[in-house]
């Protein structure tokens, strides 16, 4: 066990966990930020995607001891009230079916748009290929990313 002071969604949070604990479980178990989802634990599904200094990162592969001063943003911190253009586009296109993968999809999409304001179909396919949606909402996800790009 070790103590860590983390910057999560703009707030400083202190926790006491084993140093090999993945951020996924720190967020879910210790901080009760359960919007970040567990899907595979091995960097294959993208359900656990968060932003670390603005970049999309798989939280199941990020040990708490690696975080240091870096700024972490989770789906709960993407906007205060669901007003981020990506969240709004997701509502507009009524993307979710079961919804379980969607926080991860949104975090990947918002990191993509932060870097690339006007992504092509290929850019979207490449950036979003790590996020599995078992319900098969891929065509809507693509449309929503484009809408978000337009409205951002």
């Amino acid at each position: 066990m070790a103590s860590y002071k983390l910057n999560i969604n703009g707030e400083s949070r202190e926790i006491d966990v084993a140093e090999d604990t993945p951020m996924l479980w720190v967020l879910r178990d210790n901080l009760h930020l359960v919007g970040t989802k567990y899907g595979c634990g091995i960097a294959q599904c993208g359900a656990c995607t968060i932003h670390v200094d603005g970049k999309a990162v798989r939280s199941c592969q990020l040990r708490v001891s690696q975080v240091g001063e870096k700024k972490i943003t989770t789906i709960e911190g993407l906007s205060e009230d669901g007003s981020h253009p990506v969240q709004q586009a997701w509502i507009e296109h009524d993307v979710p079916q079961c919804g379980y993968c969607q926080a991860g999809q949104i975090m990947t999409a918002s990191a993509l748009l932060a870097e690339n304001k006007n992504p092509s179909d290929t850019d979207i396919a490449t950036a979003m290929n790590g996020n599995i949606c078992r319900c098969g909402t891929y065509t809507r996800i693509r449309a929503a990313v484009k809408t978000a790009a337009k409205n951002a």
Binding site: G35, K37, W90, P96, I106
Partner: peptide
């Protein structure tokens, strides 16, 4: 979807 807004904000909705 009546849960859509909760889903895109990552609200706790699922068994896990």
């Amino acid at each position: 979807n009546v849960d859509g807004f909760s889903i895109v904000q990552g609200k706790p909705l699922y068994g896990l």
